[in-house]
C-alpha cells in the first residue's frame, strides 16, 4: 500500500487527516514541523507528501525548496495543504516544485478522492 507523509503542526487537523486516510488503508507517517518533515523526506521513501504551508521551523515552501535540490527527489509528489489560497502564493509554490494544492477547510471525502486519484496516476505510470 502507498506510503504518505503528513506534515501538519495543528494536532486536530493532523488527527483528522490521519484518521481519514488510515481508514482508506494508506500508511501514514507524521511530522509536526518543517524540519521534521524534511528529515523524513530525505531518509525514507514516500509516494506522496502532504505538506502544510504555515509550520513552525521551516515553512512548507522552504521544505519543498530544499527537497527539490536533491536530484533523486525531483519526482516526489508533494501536495500542499494550505489555508493560503491566494493566487500569488500558489504560483510561488508551483514554481518551487509543489505538484498539487488542497485548500483548508477541506472535506475529508474529497481528500480521499484526490489522494486516490494522484496515487492511481502513479500506478498507471
Amino acid at each position: 500500500m502507498a506510503r504518505i507523509l503528513l506534515a501538519e503542526d495543528e494536532d486536530v487537523l493532523r488527527m483528522l487527516v490521519l484518521d481519514t486516510l488510515e481508514d482508506e488503508g494508506y500508511t501514514i507517517d507524521e511530522a509536526t514541523d518543517g524540519d521534521e518533515a524534511y528529515q523524513k523526506i530525505m531518509s525514507q521513501h514516500y509516494d506522496l507528501v502532504l505538506l502544510d504551508y504555515m509550520m513552525p521551523g521551516m515553512t512548507g515552501i522552504e521544505v519543498i525548496e530544499k527537497v527539490r535540490r536533491h536530484p533523486d527527489k525531483q519526482q516526489l509528489k508533494i501536495m500542499m495543504l494550505t489555508a493560503k489560497s491566494q493566487q500569488s502564493d500558489r504560483e510561488r509554490a508551483e514554481e518551487i516544485g509543489a505538484n498539487y494544492f488542497f485548500s483548508k477547510p477541506f472535506s475529508p471525502l474529497e481528500l480521499i478522492d484526490v489522494v486516490g486519484g494522484i496515487l492511481s496516476d502513479r500506478q498507471v505510470d
Binding site: E10, V12, L13, T20, A83, K104, P105, S107, P108
Partner: peptide
Amino acid sequence: VSHELRTPLSSIYGFTEL
C-alpha cells in the same frame, strides 16, 4: 486570522463530515 480561523473550521468541517 484566516489561518487561525481555518484551522478550527477545517477540523469542525472535517470531523462532522466523517
